[in-house]
Each structure stands twice: as C-alpha cells, then as structure tokens.
C-alpha cells in the first residue's frame, strides 16, 4: 500500500494531468463519442509531451492543451472528410459538490437538477460552434483571448460569437429562465 501511495503521489505531479477531466469533457463535446474522445485526449498528451519544450513561459498551459486537442480533432475531421456527427451521449455525473453547511433540500435538488438538465438540453440545441464557445467560456472559464487562440480566430469574433450563442441560449431557455430568475429572486428576498 505504501508503494502505491508514493507512486500515485509522484504521478499526479505529471505535466498537465490536472486538465485531463476538462480535456476529456471538451473532447466528448467535440466527438460525441467516448472512444474517440479517449483517443483524442491520449493523442493530445503525446503531442503536448513532444512539444512542451517549445511552450513559452508566459503561456496559458490549459489553453495550450485545449488548442492541441482541437487541432488534432480538426485534422481527424479533415482525414475523414466528413462533418461532425452529433449524437446524444448520456450524462456522466460524478455527484454534486455541495458545500458543507449549505446542503439543499431534496425538493431544491430536484428543481436544480431539472434546471440543469434543461440548460444542457438547450445547449445541445445550439450549433456546434455556439456549443463550443459556450463550453470554453462558461464551463472551462477560458478568457476571450485564450478562446481566440484555441479557435484560431480574432478575439472580436469570439466576443460576437459568444454574444450570439448566449442570446440564442437565452431564447431557448426563456420559459425556464424566467421561472428560475424569479424563484432566485424570491429566495434571496
């Protein structure tokens, strides 16, 4: 047991491993396929290890990994000469991270879960490019500049695309959103 612990501890120090969950989530969003997503993430680390000496000191490591992953995905798409095929994937939830002392009631959990599902469903209704920009900004919290690097486009394009994606998402969620906003206000008052 002792050896296992030592091994695990030293391995978690490995370069960029802290982003593996985020990269896998992004890969799932792009590929819509678990097996393809796993291959894509693995290949991303292969490329990153080869290229890490070229990583500039002031680079954003997370954004750099995302850029590699996306470029690999685009290369695969070019090879396949086909458009991304969107299929449903079942959710993979790892349990809610509730803060101690702030545990919601069962009813609240149920309502929150419904909201979450509705938002996810609405996001899946967006075009792939809107889904992608929402994923990078809202889920991965990359800055506009980092997103621009990942998507290989100007920062202005990121801003406008994000604005349109949010507007579309808001429109899709309007009935849910008004209820959520009003219940949020009620609970705050």
């Amino acid at each position: 047991m002792m050896f296992q612990k030592v091994g695990l501890s030293s391995k978690t120090e490995a370069f960029g491993l802290e982003y593996i969950d985020a990269l896998y989530g992004y890969a799932l969003m792009l590929t819509r396929n678990r097996s393809d997503a796993e291959d894509l993430v693995q290949e991303t680390y292969v490329r990153a290890l080869d290229a890490k000496d070229r990583l500039r000191e002031d680079s954003n490591v997370k954004g750099w990994f995302f850029t590699i992953l996306r470029n690999l995905w685009l290369n695969q798409l070019r090879k396949r000469k086909s458009e991304p095929h969107l299929v449903e994937i079942d959710g993979q939830e790892g349990g809610a991270d509730y803060l101690s002392g702030n545990t919601p009631s069962s009813d609240e959990i149920l309502v929150a879960k419904e909201d979450v599902e509705q938002v996810r469903f609405a996001i899946r209704q967006l075009s792939p490019e809107f889904q992608e920009v929402i994923h990078l900004r809202e889920f991965e919290e990359l800055s506009y500049q980092q997103i621009a690097i990942v998507l290989s486009c100007p920062t202005g394009t990121v801003m406008s695309r994000l604005g349109r994606a949010r507007a579309k998402l808001r429109a899709l969620l309007t009935p849910t959103w008004s209820q959520t906003a009003s219940s949020g206000k009620d609970s705050r008052s």
């Binding site: 491993l17 349990g95 991270d97 809202e138 998402l169």
Partner: peptide, 28 residues
C-alpha cells in the same frame, strides 16, 4: 449574472476514465 450562473451550474461533471488516465501516465 444569474443567467451565467445558471449556465455554469449545468457544467457536466465529466471525469476521465481511470483507464485513460493510466494510459496517459504510462505514456508520460
């Protein structure tokens, strides 16, 4: 702000499979 928070709460709790993690570590 409330809209952004609602969207952010919908972040899927995705975890890379243990086998993938192991493969990446072996690769390293």
């Amino acid at each position: 702000e409330a809209f952004s928070e609602t969207v952010q709460r919908a972040r899927p709790q995705v975890q890379a499979p243990a086998a993938l993690r192991a493969r990446v570590l072996n690769q390293m």
